[in-house]
Design a protein around this nucleic acid. Sequence first.
DNA 1: TAACATTCCGACCCAGTGGTCGGTTAACTC
DNA 2: GAGTTAACCGACCACTGGGTCGGAATGTTA
Lengths: 205, 205
Amino acid sequence: MEKSIKRRTTMNRMQVTGLELFYKNGYYNTSVDDILKELSLSKGAFYYHFDSKEDFFIQIIEQLVVRKVYSMLIEPIEGHENTLDLITNCFENALETAVHNELDYGFVLSNFIHEFNGRNQEIMKHLNEILRIWEVTLVSAIQRGKFNGHIDRHVDAEGVAVYLMSSFIGIRTLMVETAPSARKYRFMSQLRQYFKSIEVRQQSY
Amino acid sequence: MEKSIKRRTTMNRMQVTGLELFYKNGYYNTSVDDILKELSLSKGAFYYHFDSKEDFFIQIIEQLVVRKVYSMLIEPIEGHENTLDLITNCFENALETAVHNELDYGFVLSNFIHEFNGRNQEIMKHLNEILRIWEVTLVSAIQRGKFNGHIDRHVDAEGVAVYLMSSFIGIRTLMVETAPSARKYRFMSQLRQYFKSIEVRQQSY
DNA sequence: TAACATTCCGACCCAGTGGTCGGTTAACTC
DNA sequence: GAGTTAACCGACCACTGGGTCGGAATGTTA
């Protein structure tokens, strides 16, 4: 195999397996050896490609986690249709995926935020950055909705964004282990209820 | 000092310091030695009072975490006034405490849920039990509200409870590190907005 | 095919980790 | 005040963690 390709292939294999195990067992609870055993690779290979366990993880965030969040939570709400519908469908799909996940460990991003908060400033910077992007995407979606006449123009876009992020992070936490499907259903109903309260009032009566 | 008192005193000191460090650094990231160093106690003392690190932690949950959650989230909403007001004030206070916490590591309960989910069934049982109690307390509060005529009788009490728990867990996650005060304010505004949508419609117009 | 660079191997280092155990000290009982 | 027991000490153990390093294998180039 060509060298540069071989390099990227090996690194990617390590990262994919690494994310899998970090997500499943937590960062501090997963040893470099665990990952290497899974791949039948050696310590030497690992430290040839990465400077340290931390460096390894940061690259995983940049390569894999960011993309996951983008495709799941950012891109689906960038359209120009009714934004409340976009967000509803986006959440619906994200939660449905979680329900069907045999072994669900929650929302990747919030899992890692919990693990690193107050413990690793460097990694937290990266995680917060993703949250920030999610937030501005939501805010601009809400504002588009106001502009397009779907959302009441008095609502506070930042407030709605924070509220949406909160509830999503929370429901993903609640959906692990206990009645994920039922909780998802209840959550989505209430989300729609909430959305009704910020839609433009229909003057049809 | 009398023996049985001395025993309880020592155990309590260990638990208080233990919770502090577990909350701050995580369970797996805090060694028994860390706790003992803080207290100038020895391994012998620790394993004289507790069977294992896990046993120690479970006792911390039963003794300290349960009580914390009770006094912060359960008892404040058990009154018979307008339940939506009770919940609003309860959340307001809980979040305000978090804002003023110099070093905030989030909602104790959800922190530990994230850490132990899929890793320690025994401990998860205890944590889920607390969540369950919180849930039934919320559900019965909502139902009281419907009965008392404050809440629209068509709303789904279980749904509202899940939605409230979600949003609370989520906002506590978001409040660590980034703009806790602003986020709290935005969150509370939207919560009130949501509450308005499940109140009984005022026929005053 | 010789010379060189890239990729990977695995023995080794050592600072911890949870947990054990024989022993000491202090408090209570009779 | 001797004997008993609860409370605690700290050296020790087996093991694991992240990380190092000399060298072997596998390309790549001239």
